[in-house]
Amino acid sequence: MTMQNANTPLSFETVQEMSAAYDAVRSRIGLTDISDWAKLKVTGYDAREFLDRVLTGNMQQLGENEILHTMALDADGNFLTDIQVLGGFEDFILLTPADRADALAAAIKPDADEEVEVVDLGRDYCLIRVDGPESADLPMAILGGAVAGMRIMAFAEADLGDATVTVGRIGTTGEYGYFFLTDASSRDTLLAAIRAEAPDVVDCTADLHRLLQLETRGFNASADRPGGEHPLEAGLHWMVDFQKPEFVGKDGFFARAKEAPHHMVCIALDETRVVPETKTQILDGDGNDVGYVANAAWSPTLETSICLAYLKRDMAAVGLPVSIAGQSGRVVSAPFFITKSNSAR
């Protein structure tokens, strides 16, 4: 069950191989070890001000025990990586997928006169995520009332034996999804506790998450910007505080946004198992070129192929009929899948 690379569409055969894990996440619970993610701890008197300077989101409004999904740019305003920031008083944890570790390290470099310490938690910490409807009760079952009733984009700490575990609710694959962060020496204890409470939990891989996130239109930096498209073409407005006076790369970022010709949309094809490849041309009803495919897969829940695509801005609207490699489809509203009602669009 390996993907050739992040831009290779999931084939039907691959989805078949993944079906047990997919079914588990969509109807019960799946577990994924994402310990290879980059994990930085940023502390110090100037930590909040520093992160506010280098990230596009508003760190001043990030409360303790809240999670902010935002991004970092280079000095010219080019996208570096998206980041989950766990907020504290003067201490913050930054998480980003493994393939963006170098980008995260490049972004999180305080100046010499800033009172900020950056510690790479790297291999010293493990990161386990559980996704699916039955994950909702898991944090409280293994960690107790301190983590009860957790809102989405919030986190808490609790003890598990001798270990301290940080548990957060992110839900990037659906309504219910949690991560557990603890020191690597407590990994086996954590996994044992999870499996004791959820004996039917199915092991998943990071590959599967690409499909799950596509269905919920969660952002996947590796797959959703095949041509390095502008983050605002990709609809990531919500990661940016437009009112912030300054952040690294701001001028270049907004200057390029004005010139960006495309807008990301969701397209559902009409009952096909043919998965269009990345960059496949998209035509309108008259055969005019209106855009291209970014990230596509066959959706077991919808029983058809779905894709994120970049359409010319003036044509990007729900309801637009399109043709992709001879297959008909239309632009639909995000997401393709909503966990809470367990229904597909």
Partner: peptide, 15 residues
């Protein structure tokens, strides 16, 4: 123009 039409209104997104 600072609000994407597919952006979640609750939770992640506009919160």
């Amino acid at each position: 123009h600072q609000v994407d039409e597919d952006c979640p209104l609750f939770g992640v997104g506009l919160a």
